[in-house]
Design a protein around this nucleic acid. Structure first.
Length: 286
DNA sequence: CCTCATTCCTGCGGGC
DNA sequence: TGCCCGCAGGAATGAG
């Protein structure tokens, strides 16, 4: 499940291998994957062919590739649940779930958007003030140099809801998904059901800092794996099995206190927490 | 304005 | 052995 670290790995790979190369063609093999693109496959093709990507940018879990000649337009990529971007030799077989292919004039590798569950997609968008218009509502992520920690703490505490919900709210802070939310809460010893109002600003800051650190650590691990030419532009950070303390560890002992990690339903998905380190709030929210 | 449930999708694995 | 069903969850959407 690509969250900020995985998407950043993809960004680095694309930035390195796909920019500056003249685009020869675009094949859309599955229209659903371009459903957010006005004009569909044809519009994507006419926007890209003959142009080239200037660089690869990212905010939260969104990636975009600004066009060099296009008047401030970009190809936006969102990986959703299962999206990958692969740089593949032109002669290699299509992946089973290959959705979009970008071919280049040179003979080097082509860029492939592969997505099994099709929650993700690619689309053309206008760039306004440096950000595609469709992601203007996405807040800056903690790895953004212009991320405003104090303002984010205020924004979180302004919300009248549970802390985990806000961590997942991309309009408040972006890049955090279910996995890193659980990890940050475990490190902070905070139960995700705690209401934002019941947490002092200092504790919210602690959660934020843990989220930042855990994502940096994941990035440091994932960043090494894409160095090969088979650009691991696929969002696998390798962080999963090795270093997670809470997520997916139901029944396994908490690495701090030994109590078995508990899985609970939350927002139509799962939350993992230590029942001893992350006690339930005393009273239900009123 | 704000919060929250619903919806999209398909492979996998457990249970029978 | 094979089928069915639950589960995985990011984020747009519309209801309340």
């Amino acid at each position: 499940m690509p969250e900020l670290p995985e998407v950043e790995v993809v960004r680095r790979g694309v930035d390195r291998w796909a920019t500056g190369r003249a685009i020869a063609g675009v094949d859309v093999l599955y229209p659903r994957s371009v459903r957010r693109s006005p004009g569909g496959a044809g519009a994507i093709r006419s926007a890209l062919v003959g142009d080239c990507f200037r660089c690869a940018s990212r905010r939260g879990k969104y990636l975009w590739l600004p066009l060099a000649d296009g008047d401030d337009r970009a190809l936006v990529v969102h990986l959703g649940m299962s999206g990958q971007v692969l740089m593949q030799p032109v002669e290699s077989d299509d992946e089973k779930h290959l959705r979009v292919r970008v071919r280049f004039d040179d003979d080097d590798r082509e860029m492939r958007f592969v997505d099994q569950r099709t929650f993700g997609g690619v689309y053309i968008d206008d760039v306004l003030d440096g950000v595609p218009s469709t992601i203007a509502h996405i807040a800056r992520d903690p790895l953004d140099p212009q991320f405003d920690r104090a303002a984010t703490i205020r924004a979180i505490r302004r919300k009248d809801t549970e802390i985990k919900r806000v961590l997942l709210d991309q309009s408040v802070i972006s890049g955090i998904g279910n996995i890193y939310a659980d990890e940050a809460l475990w490190r902070s010893k905070v139960n995700g059901r705690r209401s934002t109002g019941s947490l002092p600003a200092s504790k919210v800051g602690e959660v934020l800092d843990h989220a930042t650190v855990v994502m940096r650590e994941a990035l440091a691990q994932g960043g090494t794996s894409f160095d090969s030419l088979y650009v691991n532009v696929n969002g696998e950070s390798g962080y999963f099995e090795r270093s997670l303390d809470a997520y997916g560890r139901e029944g396994e002992p908490c690495r701090r206190c030994g109590a078995p990690i508990r899985r609970e339903a939350f927002m139509n998905r799962s939350s993992y927490r230590c029942p001893r380190c992350q006690r339930s709030p005393r009273a239900p929210r009123t």
